[in-house]
Each structure stands twice: as structure tokens, then as C-alpha cells.
Design a protein around this nucleic acid. Structure first.
Lengths: 103, 103
DNA sequence: GAAACTGTTCGATAATTGCCGAACACTTAT
DNA sequence: ATAAGTGTTCGGCAATTATCGAACAGTTTC
């Protein structure tokens, strides 16, 4: 059996929620990591923090519609939902990623 | 005497804080209003809410570096700090404003 | 089947946030 | 001077959020 995750449909992805998901330094860094790779193992997004904290942040990103999570075996792979973000909020993700990482 | 407001310098304007300021529906609507006018009277940004609530939200926007507030007489005028935002986070404000208002 | 591995869920706690009434400060008009 | 107008500050309260340990669930390996 495979874990199932809830993802909002594209039509339910709201700007305030996406902005909130991106407004935390930890999650912003996660998104930067995701932007450089196709898919990342959940716990690799926060190697130096407790697992439950990683789960917390990845869930907020997922439920906001920023990321997609699919489980495979005992891993779960996380990726950016670029199609959704770029369609609904053109330029937003690019602008966020283009900003200097330390700010 | 004139009220003085603290504004962060451009170098201290951080992306997470700006995103957080924009992540609230009330403040997002304020920013949309500001984008259409040069400067707006504080309380006109939230005609239907208590004054202290308006002050609360406008302060978060100001302290994040999103807006500038200057007092004149008994009014205070609020405007977007486009120069700062467009310089530090090119495309961000445009992307936010371009998104449909109801999302 | 037992152990190891990956990640979630639960519960608790501290900190932050949103909301708003009441009192206050400053300015302008009468 | 008095009153009215504009906005801030303060205090309290409810709700949300961030963090993390402990227990748990599913998967793979041995």
C-alpha cells in the first residue's frame, strides 16, 4: 500500500496561501532546493532538522499547492507544481527564485 | 508636530517578510488599491473595518518595506515602495498584482 | 519474522498573529 | 478654547503557527 496525499486542484490554489507558504525562510529554502532538482526526497529538504518539522513544512507547501508529493516505496518524492504556479501566477515563482537567497 | 514612521532601509527589506505581508487577503487588497492610486489615505484602505485593525495591517505592510507612510496634517498618506520592491525583487509585485483579485 | 529505514501523526508548548474596543495624541475647524 | 476629524497605542483575547519528541505505519532488507 502506498501513502496518499491530498493536493488542491489548480482552481483551488489561492494566492494568499501560496504567498504564506513561501513566506517562511525554511520553506523558501526548500523551494530553492526543489527548483534546482526534478524531485527531492522529503527529508533531504531539511537534513538538519527533526523529521516532524520537515513534515510540517512540506505539508504546508503541498496544501498550498506549491508542491506535489508522491510516495514510492518507503520514500516520498517532492517536486514543484510549476505548471500550476506558472499558469495561475505567471512570473511569481521566477521572481521569488530570482531574489537573492539570503533575503 | 508630525508623526514619524519607521521604514526599513532597502537593504533590510527581506523577501520572507514581504511575502508574509502580502499573504493576508486584507493586506493584499490594500496593495491592489495602492497600485491603482498614487497615494491613499490610511483609513480609505479599509473603509469597513475598525481603525485599529487598519493600523495593524498598514503597519505590517510598512515594516515589511512594502509601503511608505507619511503624515500630513491629520491625514497619513500611504504609497507603494515600488522602487525598492522592483529593484530587490524584480517582477514580484507585478506578478502579485497580475494574479486574479479573487484568488 | 525481525530489524532497519522513511516518513506521518499526535500531543504539548511557546510564540506569533488577527481582531477590536477604549483611551490617547495631534491637527483642523468653529 | 472647544469640538470634530484622523490615526496610533494599549490591552486583552482567540486562533494560528513553529517546533519537536515520542509513538506509530508502511516498506525494504536480512
Amino acid at each position: 500500500m502506498v501513502r496518499s496525499y491530498e493536493h488542491p486542484e489548480a482552481k483551488d490554489v489561492s494566492l494568499p496561501r501560496v504567498l504564506f507558504a513561501l513566506s517562511d525562510p525554511v520553506r523558501l529554502e526548500m523551494v530553492r532546493i526543489l527548483a534546482r532538482r526534478e524531485a527531492v526526497n522529503s527529508l533531504d529538504l531539511g537534513p538538519d532538522m527533526p523529521k516532524s518539522t520537515v513534515t510540517h513544512h512540506t505539508r504546508i507547501l503541498r496544501e498550498a499547492g506549491v508542491t506535489r508529493t508522491r510516495s514510492q516505496g518507503r520514500n516520498c518524492w517532492i517536486s514543484l507544481r510549476r505548471e500550476v504556479l506558472d499558469t495561475k501566477f505567471p512570473g511569481l515563482l521566477d521572481a521569488v527564485l530570482a531574489a537573492e537567497a539570503d533575503r
